[in-house]
């Protein structure tokens, strides 16, 4: 389905998309991917080609192009109302762009019907901005939703639900109704629900907004573990700089005793699987690594980073 020259094309596009100031790290990224034997890994998990979207006369996305490689985390920064949630909804096919192409796993989903989208959505986990838990269902049924829809055997469902809730550290809340949960717990149930079925792409829409710092940290740790241990590609929308520090500065490894630990990026290792993209007025105003972001002399970016 995906031809070789398409792969080449997308690789070159990714290089050009990440503008001149990011060429070094991109070359590094490309060389890394080139060494991986599996050719399918060079097909990007998500690709936008010149996507436009307007609501009425307001331009929300004015020609967005970017690539999220397999196993890569793309952090999307941007003020409120810059179209971050909209962009994520386009990936899921909940919204359709006015023009441009959207590819998921090399598959052009732009013109897919709702029915065709259903199979694509099975590969994608979405964490909504406000959790979007089903009020009428218990935590168990929320997390089990996807499996129940697929008529999976109940014993298997229960095992999977417990495993997921353990992953987000909420096994005690299994019997509760969403209304009884705090904001952070709701968000984590949302994450557990999105992770069921082991999707290869996960979309986080401001997963830490409005949460206390320790809970926000927990959620970032989850994202790091998914990235480094589960080989998940993700888009992580946020406007909190500490999330960015965590995601770009730490990585998860399994130590000798089998425990998962987080280590700081240091002299000897620099994370290349996390890139940053910044949106403003429907345009990408920055794309590259966190080091480049912090060094940027763009006034808007500096204001965004330092809050003044």
């Amino acid at each position: 389905m995906v031809s070789t020259d398409f792969e080449l094309q997308s690789a070159s596009e990714s290089a050009s998309a990440e503008t001149a100031n990011a060429t070094v790290s991109d070359a590094a990224a490309d060389s890394t991917f080139a060494e991986v034997d599996d050719r399918s890994r060079t097909v990007p998990a998500i690709e936008f080609r010149d996507v436009h979207l307007t609501f009425g006369e307001r331009v929300i996305l004015g020609g967005i192009s970017f690539v999220v490689q397999k196993g890569e985390t793309k952090i999307i920064l941007g003020g409120s109302g810059t179209g971050k949630s909209t962009l994520i909804k386009i990936i899921l096919g909940l919204l359709k762009p006015d023009s441009g192409r959207v590819l998921v796993d090399g598959e052009d989903i732009t013109d897919y019907t709702e029915e065709q989208m259903m199979s694509v959505r099975h590969k994608i986990g979405m964490i909504f901005q406000e959790g979007a838990l089903f009020d009428s269902l218990s935590v168990y049924d929320n997390v089990a939703y996807r499996l129940h829809e697929q008529n999976v055997d109940e014993a298997q469902v229960e095992e999977e639900v417990r495993r997921m809730l353990r992953f987000v550290n909420l096994e005690d809340a299994i019997e509760k109704m969403p209304i009884e949960l705090s904001g952070g717990m709701r968000r984590r149930v949302g994450i557990a629900r999105a992770l069921v079925g082991a999707p290869s792409v996960i979309l986080f829409d401001e997963p830490t907004a409005g949460l206390d710092p320790p809970t926000a940290r927990t959620i970032c740790e989850l994202a790091i573990k998914l990235r480094d241990l589960e080989d998940v590609s993700s888009i992580f929308v946020t406007h909190e700089m500490n999330n960015l520090t965590y995601l770009t500065g730490e990585y998860a490894v399994v130590d000798d005793s089998g425990e998962v630990i987080l280590e700081q990026e240091g002299e000897k290792l620099c994370l290349i699987n996390t890139k940053i993209m910044m949106l403003r007025d429907g345009e990408i105003i920055f794309s590259g690594t966190d080091e480049l972001l912090r060094k940027s002399d763009d006034r808007y970016i500096q204001t965004f980073i330092h809050g003044k």
Binding site: K89, L94, R121, F128, F134, R146, E149
Partner: peptide, 12 residues
């Protein structure tokens, strides 16, 4: 509350 979107996102 985006539950309809969530439902579609979960493939229903």
């Amino acid at each position: 509350s985006q539950q309809i979107d969530a439902m579609r996102a979960l493939g229903t």
